[in-house]
Design a protein around this nucleic acid. Structure first.
Lengths: 233, 233
DNA sequence: GGTCCGTGTGACGAACTCATGACGACGGTG
DNA sequence: CACCGTCGTCATGAGTTCGTCACACGGACC
């Protein structure tokens, strides 16, 4: 799972754009705004970059050769909730809606105004930022490293699925606090998910199976009846 | 039974929609979800309502007679950053884009799914709200953290049910003030609950059993004969 | 002391909440 | 293509919580 940064302003932006000229313009625009921009010339390389490290925001062109922008967007959303801004041709409103439905958070139209672009990046990063994760969270003999995406128990690595890991992170970053199913659904599955909230139960159970000493008497993720789940502080 | 909601959910929604049938459906849908919905049949009256009081979320139809939705949206945005959800016809992607550009935060398409609608409202309100300060209320050796959903007594966690917890929170957030049974019923059980007010007594008793040193001589939640209950300030 | 009204107490069935196991769908991989 | 891991949904059952009731208790007032 990708977790947002701690600082007040976003620092890193990943640009996924095939046209070298536009990419260059974006790059310089952002750099002038004090942002660290990394370029990718296709959806595939973009996903690779994203696998290597975290970014605060992703700028995604919809008209890409090979894997198109929507596909890339959906693919990113499967593993991350990093804010995505689409880059579209002016007036192509159908693309915008399709992009939003694919999981993008905002969009800018070509030709874009530099100031507007950076303002949107900042606004988006501010709105979607996750609560500050600690560098390393310890719960009993469990050690969680949100940035690395790893969990170890008594030194032994624990193999969690992406959903389980995100769930654990959300709970563990606010120890002592009870998180309702609604809240967890929104944070882990995204605000536009409208399925059964029993889904949380199932994943908590799967998570417990892997991290709890005795899944029958959980100590890491405890149930607060009628309210939700909590990692004891 | 309809249980009232936890305190971190939005309460009030302003519906700006000219079609009486749709307005009615929206109203009932939201009410069933425990939201307080106010109706406005045109952009003008909507703006008036908004001038009178605050809302947590605004539902705005784009196809309005007179002042259209975009205009209303821009007008609202000049004075307020209240979350706005547009209501659009299915597939009308151009409107969606124009609406977002006018300052809306999200959109739903007609026909909408009740569950989705209320989920979007909740999610939007939660995201745009300023993070609530972590209040800690102390009553004797009792410590209440409404946001965390936890209560401790002399450091030891106290296991309260949802109803007991809400009841205690309502009383403890206004120490010294006597809350009548009717008032407590409305706040804890919701304004749409019409039952025996003796219900409060029973839950006060259950609450006392868990938080009082000597439930026979309560010090945390005291009875004011003929008036109601109070947490001594 | 006796009566009345408001409140405390214990008990009970109904409703609800959650854990559990199982199933099918889907995508990735060999 | 079959296999595997992950995910979302569902049905079931156990345990908890809730709302209601009948009755006991105890001040207030006569």
């Amino acid at each position: 799972m990708r977790v947002g940064r701690l600082s007040d302003v976003p620092r890193s932006v990943l640009i996924i754009e095939d046209d070298p000229r536009i990419r260059r313009i974006l790059q310089m625009t952002l750099q002038r705004e004090g942002l660290d921009a990394v370029e990718a010339d296709s959806g595939e390389t973009g996903l690779e970059r994203l696998a290597e490290r975290d970014f605060d925001v992703i700028l995604l062109d919809l008209m890409l050769p090979g894997k198109d922008g929507f596909e890339v967007c959906r693919e990113i959303r499967r593993t991350s909730n990093v804010p995505i801004i689409m880059v579209t041709a002016r007036g192509d409103s159908h693309d915008v809606v399709a992009g939003l439905e694919a999981g993008a958070d905002d969009y800018v139209s070509k030709p874009f105004v530099a100031k507007e672009l950076s303002a949107r990046i900042r606004a988006l990063a501010r709105r979607t930022r996750a609560p500050q994760p600690r560098v390393r969270i310890e719960v009993g003999d469990l050690e969680i490293a949100p940035q690395d995406g790893t969990v170890t128990r008594a030194g032994e690595p624990v193999n969690l699925t992406r959903t389980e890991f995100k769930l654990l992170c959300e709970l563990a970053t606010e120890p002592g606090r009870v998180l309702s199913r609604e809240e967890l659904l929104e944070r882990v599955w995204g605000y536009d998910y409208f399925g059964d909230s029993r889904l949380v139960d199932v994943h908590v159970r799967r998570l417990r199976k892997k991290v709890e000493e005795d899944p029958g008497h959980p100590t890491v993720v405890t149930t607060v009846r009628g309210m939700g789940y909590r990692v004891p502080g």
